[in-house]
Design a protein around this nucleic acid. Structure first.
Lengths: 224, 224
DNA sequence: CGCATACTTGATTCGCTTCAAAACTCGTGG
DNA sequence: CCACGAGTTTTGAAGCGAATCAAGTATGCG
């Protein structure tokens, strides 16, 4: 169950019921935006199912996806007046939403929850910085290979076959992958077909991807 | 005084003396590295003076600076076994260093300090993500313009003249600037001379920079 | 003064983008 | 069941921005 890894998981029963009174389930359809950059920040949430993107964009419309959120991830930015990054559902998603102000008060009153949020934020910061290395210094091939391995880690569960061969459906379009990697859609497509031609991956249909040779793919991803 | 903005600033007098017993002053010379990526994480600190860089690099030696730290900034990564990013002094620097474990205990015992660290970490995360947009989607000119404005904000104090003309010394070499922006040293140099030729900035000597026309520079920086 | 390091400038190359068009996917309705 | 069409992905050709390669010029320190 997801509950075990959410912020709520750190609470005692009494604390939990108090927080649950604050929270409301909310569904998001694929493509629906929970909050737009520049809006007043009114809510925080736990992601129960689905995948969300966090994105920033330039004045002339260039977009960069600055984070991907998976089930049990925390959503939103406590203590900020304004939403810094748009939050959009990449798949249908389900959230447990809290109004920001009451949630902040709950944080103050429940040290364990605050502590857990701190640890998660520190982890998110490490991840963001790892992605900075990727954006600034990796080649297109390295970016695509890293991305596929990352997605495999998040989406392919624990059912890894001996050969390390796993299959999963990407929750992102090519355009969105390009926006994660700081590339164009054409470059992403070309790199994917190249990796397929070379037998490291397979692209059976639509958004599906099979990792055929994890080791070689890891080599292509280079990394720190 | 810097103290007012450090984590210590959130503490009562008794708490402060307790923390001070933990902490030791430490000097770093320009170029000296406090911790190497991959090392065991043994310390946290407050930066009292100077500028530090946080950097990541690929296996084959490409480097990306993933963060710059200024006086009053928090240094280190509580709750991590291993150092994720190398920490190096760009200028001579002075820190108040705490052993990590005792510092973590202090965090647990002093809710206000933990709370302040949470807020700072959230702010650092926002900044890292803004930099992801820059790395992924901005042109060389936009990157350099953004960088100069950023440095002006940190280094030029509050003594902004009416015309917005400010001068300061960059604490980074061209190579380091390139490592912040995900460019090469030559590209950085060319963009700087271009901005100078066009009258937006001046490069009087060595590392000195004068912002001549903040508005135009802002336009070149594009941004969100 | 002389050497090492840092910075600028120029010529060329290359990886990625841009522009363009064909091929595929998938939902819908005939 | 298949034809249709919008959206998505792949593929190709050409162009461009930044990297690379290569000098040449400052800067600073012994």
């Amino acid at each position: 169950m997801v509950r075990d890894r959410t912020l709520c998981g750190s609470l005692s029963d009494e604390e939990l019921t108090a927080l649950n009174r604050l929270g409301r389930k909310r569904q998001l359809a694929r493509g629906e935006t929970l909050a737009w950059a520049g809006d007043e920040a009114v809510l925080c949430a736990n992601l129960l199912s689905g995948v969300l993107k966090l994105s920033a964009s330039t004045a002339d419309g260039r977009e960069q996806i600055v984070g991907l959120l998976y089930p049990s991830d925390f959503v939103g930015r406590p203590f900020a007046q304004e939403v810094e990054h748009s939050i959009t559902a990449l798949t249908d998603a389900e959230l447990c939403v809290f109004p920001r102000k009451p949630f902040e008060e709950a944080l103050e009153n429940h040290v364990r929850m605050e502590r857990l949020l701190l640890r998660r934020t520190l982890a998110a910061l490490d991840e963001a910085r790892a992605r900075m290395l990727m954006l600034g210094r990796k080649t297109a091939e390295e970016k695509v290979a890293s991305f596929l391995l990352d997605m495999a880690g998040h989406l392919a569960g624990r059912d890894r076959r001996p050969a390390g061969e796993v299959t999963f459906d990407l929750p992102l379009t090519r355009t969105q992958i390009a926006d994660v990697l700081g590339l164009t859609i054409e470059t992403v497509s070309r790199q994917m077909t190249k990796l397929k031609r070379e037998g490291l991956i397979d692209l059976p249909a639509g958004r599906a991807v099979t990792i055929r040779n994890r080791e070689s793919l890891q080599e292509r991803a280079e990394a720190a």
